[in-house]
Simulated assay, not measured.
Amino acid sequence: MRLPSPLVAGRLVKRYKRFLADVLLDDGREVTAHCANPGSMLGVAVEGAKVWLWEHGDRKRKLAFSWELVEIGGVLIPVNTTNPNRIVPEALDKGVIPELSGYGEIAREVKYGEGSRIDLLLSGGRRKKPCYVEIKNVHLSRTPGLAEFPDSVTKRGAKHLEELSRLADAKQARPVMLFVVQRADCRRFAPAADLDPAYAKALKSAASAGVELLCYDCEVTTSEVVLRKALEIDLETT
């Protein structure tokens, strides 16, 4: 996935009201940027960290800048939580996710369950059952090499796991939970049980019910984010 351009560098002054961030640009201007991340951004919204903003030039938008990247400990991390929904379809087209190969059609934001929408519905091809793929963005890493989700309590995330579990029970579709780690310094993934014990419990329950769990990391540069390789998933240490 190509990142928008041009990107301008600066330092994070503060992130506040969930969707706003003040940044001191390298050219001396202090600007307010839109932050497309509703989570806590634990370990990512670090004051003084180097960041990159997109100056989009759209006069119809209230803010002229959008926050795209942050560098933490030498690691580039995209902050936009909608990126994975673009990254995954591109990876499927390139055959980067062998577990999800063999389908002929991809539909997005399909209604299912009790008022939910699945991120991707894969169907057709040589596969017998349709595949419901829920995608979650991951950027939290508090222990070297370990990616974690969520970074705060997510009742919505637990609901998605319940919906996928019902699909597994019905045995008429293939439910998949796919975690996309938008960073390249992690080797394994685990739920952040101390931050949201209910979600960690729901994830274990979903896996036991037959929901497939996948996790992939990304190669990140200041110009693009590309799905890279599968990470080990650890549910036993939570």
Rank of each mutant, 00 (worst) to 15 (best):
R117F: 07
A184R: 11
V226C: 09
S66T: 14
P89T: 06
N37G: 06
M1C: 07
K129H: 08
E224V: 09
N85I: 04
G124Q: 10
S5F: 02
F149N: 08
L92S: 00
T221S: 15
E109D: 11
A45E: 06
F149P: 03
L161P: 02
L121E: 05
G145C: 07
I106Y: 04
A173M: 07
R127V: 06
C35Y: 13
K129Y: 08
L195E: 12
V8K: 13
P175F: 08
K155E: 13
C215D: 04
L195H: 02
K60R: 15
T81L: 07
P4I: 02
E148P: 00
L76K: 10
G125Y: 10
V176N: 01
E236Y: 04
T222G: 09
T82R: 15
T238G: 13
V13P: 10
S40Y: 01
P144W: 04
L203E: 12
V75A: 09
Y132F: 15
R228D: 15
S141F: 06
M177W: 02
A158Q: 05
L53D: 09
E114G: 01
V8M: 08
D93F: 00
A36S: 14
R156T: 13
E55W: 01
V110Q: 10
E148N: 01
C215L: 06
F65T: 08
L231P: 12
A190D: 00
S165V: 03
G124C: 13
F179L: 11
N83F: 14
F189L: 15
A9Q: 15
D93N: 00
S116R: 15
I72W: 01
C131F: 13
P144E: 12
V181F: 03
V46Y: 04
T82H: 13
R86W: 14
A230S: 15
R126E: 14
P197S: 03
E47Y: 01
V79F: 07
G28D: 03
L235M: 07
A192T: 00
S116N: 12
D22A: 12
E71N: 11
R127S: 05
E90N: 10
P150S: 02
L3K: 08
G10L: 13
L213Q: 08
E134Q: 11
L214G: 05
P150T: 00
D27E: 13
V46W: 07
E162N: 01
A193Y: 03
L24S: 14
P78F: 09
P197H: 03
R18A: 13
E162K: 05
S165T: 09
R18M: 09
A170C: 03
V225L: 07
L122K: 08
W54C: 07
K155Q: 10
L140T: 08
E90Q: 13
R15P: 09
Y132N: 07
T238R: 03
R156Y: 12
K111W: 05
V110H: 00
V133E: 10
S5A: 12
E30C: 07
H34W: 15
V88C: 09
I87C: 08
G113P: 08
E148G: 00
G104H: 12
E219L: 08
I97M: 05
L7G: 07
R166P: 02
L178I: 13
V226H: 04
E47R: 11
K62N: 10
L63K: 12
V180W: 06
T143K: 13
E55L: 12
E219W: 03
E114P: 01
P78Y: 05
P6C: 01
A36K: 15
S165Y: 05
V220I: 12
I233Q: 04
A202H: 03
K204C: 13
